[in-house]
Each structure stands twice: as C-alpha cells, then as structure tokens.
Write a protein that binds this DNA or RNA. Structure first.
Lengths: 221, 221
DNA sequence: ACTAAATACGAATATCGTTCGGATCTTTGG
DNA sequence: CCAAAGATCCGAACGATATTCGTATTTAGT
C-alpha cells in the first residue's frame, strides 16, 4: 500500500521516478500489517516528540515488533520516514485529484486556494504530517534522490494543473510553481510552528503571498 | 568574541535575548584561540560534508584539540553549531549596518535589495554558511529558545529599518517582515541547493517574490 | 619561583543504529 | 492433511558516536 509510490489517480507521466523505500515487499498479510503498524508508530512518535525523539527501538516497541523486524523491511531508519512521507504524498495527491474532478473551479486562483486548504487540513488530521510533511525534516531528498521533496510536489501539481486546465506547460510555469511551493511551504510551516492548528493570520498571509506571486507571473506570460 | 551574541552596532532593543551557547567563557588567550579554531573547524566540516558529516571527534581532530577540550567550553555538539550560527548572525548584522550607514538608499526597495545581496554573498564567502546559515539545519530554535531563527533575523531587520528610515513600527510590519524573511530564506536556500553559487534564475525570482510581497503590504498600510 | 585557577587530555561509559544466525510461522505441492 | 521451502521473527551482539570525569599540564598573579 505504501510501496509503489505512485498515487492512484492516473499516470503522473514524466515526473521523476520514486524508488521504493522498502528493502523488500511484504509477501504475507501478517507482515504487510506489521509494516503498516510500524509506519503508524512512526507517525505517532513524530507527533509526540518530533523527529529528534524518533528512535528505531521506539518504533519497534510502539509497533509491538522486534527491532529485527523493522530491519527486515526497512534498510535503515531514514527509510521508515521515507515510506511515511510517500504515504503522505499519496494522500495529498488523492485528495487533490478528488477535489479537482468533483468541484467546478472557475479559475486557477480558486484551485490554488483549494490545494492550500488541503495542505493545511492535512497538518491537522494526518498523524505525523505536521512534523514530517513530505520528508524535509529527515532529508531534503527523501522522496527522490534526484530532486528536492518540494520539487517532486511541484512537479505533480504541474502535471495535474496542465491536464485539468489545459494550460501551456512552459518551463516558466515549472519554475514559478517550484518557487510558489517552496515559499508557501516555508510560511505554512512557520504558521504551524507557532500554533498547532496553524496561526490563522500567517496562513492567510501565506495564501496572499502565493496568489500574488503566481498572479504576477501569469500576467506576464 | 562569539559569546554575548549581540552585534556591534547599537542596541537591538526588545528583540528576545540570546543565550550564550558556551558552558563558560574562555579566560585565557590560549583557550580563546582554541574556541575559535573549533568554530572554524566546524565551519569547514560543514562545507565539506554537510551537517550529517559533523561529528564531535572530527571537530576536535580538525581543530587539533582533544575531545575533552571541546566539552570544556561547549555543553554539547549542538552548542558548537549554535555559536557558529551566532557568529554568522553577527557578520550579517555588521555588514548590513555598515551598508546602511554608508550608502544612501532612496527608498526601502533598494534597501531590501541590498540586504538580499548581502545574504546571498555570505553564502559564497562565509565558511559553513551555505550549510548552517542561521542554524536551521541543526535546530529551528538554535539562536533563541523562544523564537525561530528567522524570527530573530526578522526582528533585527525590523529594528534596523525602523531606526534608519523612521517608519512606523506597527505589528503589521513585524508580521510582513517575518513572512518575507521566511519565504525569501526558503527560496534562496533552494537556489543554493541547485547551484553552489546560487542559481541566478531562482535568486532573481526570490527578489521578485520578496519585493512584490512587501510592496503589496506597504501599499495597503 | 610558587600557588591557585584554568585548561588539556583521552580512556571509559551510555546510547543508538544496524547486523546476523537460529527459531518460528505460512504457504505450497503432493 | 503433511512436509519441505520460503517468509518472517527475534533479540543478543557489534560498531559508531556523544558525553563524562579524574588526572596531568599550563597559565597568571604575587
């Protein structure tokens, strides 16, 4: 379930491929469940004590498995976080494509707002997300060894937007999206550092920042 | 020298106080020099192998001191990075106040540009800065236990700007600066991840982003 | 030169990530 | 349903790193 790394809805095309964090896939139901328990344990520990509080023995204890079982499927500690980040990315992608297909969005501005809402909501509801998000705390290249985590996210958003709205897929769009994601991510991270539910004032400013930047970019091209 | 944490130029007023990272101040010249050597070693190692490659034994070896000598002055490894981040903050503050006093800036926009230039230049010239910057890699609260590193930086900038230009010191200004610093920092970080000298296109976009955001904010107030 | 304080030193300890070989459980073929 | 093969489980043992602490050495003041 948290393995192949590609979200359920449609082919995501030319985005850089994402390697499996698992040393090998669980073949039996028993072990598949255990792997999920490990990821859940990881998420809970992250919420409780942050990334610094994450130790392999704690993951094992919380998941009620032996330490050796962790290494049966994960090559190292980082890989556990990686798998969780991947699961987060899948949830993110699924929620966006669901929202994109069901709702009728007049313009790109509403779409951006909707995506931000989803991202913010995940901070509040997805275990471990407020700490790990898409992996930055553990490693900037957690999702893909060849691209920053946010670049992977930006790439997916670009594909979705291009396919949904049929806009030109220019290099400029890619750059603008990368910048918007990076900046918005940083400001929203700050909002959730100051307030577990996300400082409303900062969240609002993050939206203004992103909208303003993208608007100025679209106006020019 | 890297101790009191407050930069040379003028009182920085109500910004939250910064604790000394040192376990105790070196009293003899010999030890003062050694502490500096440790910080220089720390910076070099960061440039060579990043924060993950930073180990206490390596700092000791590179600085040609015994491991025990490191702990004579620093309570733990984090504190070494903390002292270096503090030194970086002082350099930043000094360069800004020098530029601010010598140059005649017509408007705030030029000033923002100048500050960004200084920040960018430090990535290229100050050892360890491209990795550590103001401490985020080690700990978001490295500079001050009560405030994010970028909040400390934003606070200093606010004081400088208010004093230099005599603008109103409103809560809105503080928030806007905090956002601008956070977003700009993130985008510039990305620029230097992609290119050791800072991807020019991304650097330019960072400037646009910051200018645009601050402009829209000033226009309203 | 002498003494007290400061500093240097590095072996020993504690913690954490990771490995490995034998024990146990699941699946498969007959 | 049974036994062999494959998958999984287990946790003591190992290696690397952070940190401590008692002792030896150096500096500064008189």
């Amino acid at each position: 379930m948290a393995c192949r790394g590609v979200s359920g809805s449609g082919d995501n095309g030319p985005v850089t491929e994402i390697r499996t964090p698992l040393r090998r896939l669980p073949a039996q139901r028993r072990s598949a469940e255990r792997v999920q328990r490990m990821l859940d344990a990881c998420a809970d520990i992250l919420d409780e004590d942050g990334y610094d509080g994450l130790t392999t023995t704690r993951i094992a204890q919380r998941a009620e498995v032996a330490i050796g079982s962790v290494y049966q499927f994960f090559p190292d500690k980082r890989a556990v976080a990686q798998a969780l980040a991947l699961r987060n990315l899948e949830v993110f992608g699924d929620r966006i494509s669901r929202t994109l297909t069901e709702g009728a969005f007049a313009d790109w501005s509403d779409t951006v707002g909707a995506i931000i809402d989803i991202f913010v909501e995940m901070h509040r509801t997805v275990p471990g997300f407020r700490v790990l998000r898409f992996g930055d705390v553990a490693d900037v290249n957690l999702l893909d060894s060849d691209a920053d985590n946010n670049a992977v996210v930006a790439g997916r958003l670009r594909t979705m937007i291009v396919e949904t709205f049929g806009v030109k897929d220019t290099p400029g769009l890619a750059t603008a999206l990368a910048i918007a994601v990076e900046a918005g991510d940083a400001v929203l991270k700050m909002a959730f550092r100051r307030d577990p539910d996300g400082d409303p004032e900062i969240v609002a400013e993050a939206e203004r920042l992103i909208h303003g930047y993208l608007a100025s970019h679209i106006r020019e091209s």
